[in-house]
Computed example of a mutant assay.
Amino acid sequence: MSCEKCNNPLATEMYAELGAFIDALPEKRGALISVLHRAQAIFGYLPKEVQEYVGQKLNIPTAQVYGVVSFYSFFTMEPKGKYPISVCLGTACYVRGADRVLDAFKNELGIEVGQTTSDGKFSLDALRCVGACGLAPVVMIGDKVYGRINTAEQVKEIIAEYQE
């Protein structure tokens, strides 16, 4: 499966990029997780069609691909916003008010955890630990880490950085 039959040149290009990555692997056996990471980097998420394509290219059942995608929390089958926001709810962050920070993001963006704003700009998730406990509470937007976030005003300032 690829996107040769679809009328979306960008999708065709993305499938071609993923296919080239898989074809360049010296050993396809045991490469599923690295292929899924690359696929998610290319597509932004892992819909059914991408999982089927990966399975075909690696010669493994789609059910096995789905099993890995659904097991690991890093992988997502739903599109994320342009700016994915993750609020750490690990112990250190939680005791320092991460639940209030999460509530401030929900109120400011008008979405719940696991949702994306209607304009596709922001998505909101909670995670267990980012490993930056000394900066608690911690928020990540993409790969950028924000530490010691504990007021609604800080949340508004962070969101404002990404408004265009």
Rank of each mutant, 00 (worst) to 15 (best):
R128V: 08
A160N: 09
G97Q: 02
T12K: 11
Y15W: 09
Y53E: 06
A20Q: 14
E4L: 14
Q56F: 05
N7E: 15
A24L: 08
L102A: 13
V138N: 14
I111S: 08
Y83V: 09
L135F: 05
E17C: 04
A24F: 03
C88N: 04
A11M: 12
A126W: 02
Q51Y: 00
K57R: 15
Y66E: 11
Y53M: 04
F43M: 09
K156Q: 15
C88D: 08
C129G: 01
M77G: 13
G114N: 02
L135T: 02
F71M: 09
F21I: 07
D143Y: 07
G67E: 13
V68N: 01
M140R: 15
V95I: 15
D125M: 14
E153M: 02
I33G: 01
Q56G: 12
S118K: 13
K80M: 13
A104E: 02
V68T: 15
C88S: 04
G30I: 08
R128G: 07
Y146G: 05
L102W: 02
Q64H: 07
C93K: 00
G120R: 13
V155T: 01
G30Q: 08
P137R: 09
V139E: 09
E164F: 07
E153D: 10
V155C: 00
R148Y: 07
A11P: 00
I22P: 01
K28Q: 15
D99A: 15
F43I: 10
S34Y: 03
D99V: 07
C129A: 01
N150E: 11
V65T: 04
E112G: 07
V113L: 02
I60E: 06
V35L: 04
T151L: 04
L10E: 14
M1S: 14
I60S: 11
L25V: 12
E161N: 10
G110F: 05
G147R: 08
Q163V: 12
P79W: 05
N59G: 06
V69G: 08
G44A: 10
S86M: 11
G147D: 12
I159A: 01
G19I: 10
V87P: 03
V139T: 15
T117M: 10
R38D: 05
L89Q: 15
Q40H: 10
C3V: 08
H37D: 13
V87K: 02
L135C: 07
A63K: 09
Q40V: 08
L124W: 07
N107H: 10
A104R: 00
F105R: 06
R29L: 10
F122D: 04
E112T: 13
D103S: 12
K82C: 00
G134W: 01
E164G: 11
D23I: 01
D23L: 02
I111V: 14
A126P: 01
A31M: 02
F122S: 06
A152H: 06
T12L: 12
D143S: 13
A16C: 01
G97R: 03
H37L: 09
K106F: 04
G19T: 12
F122G: 03
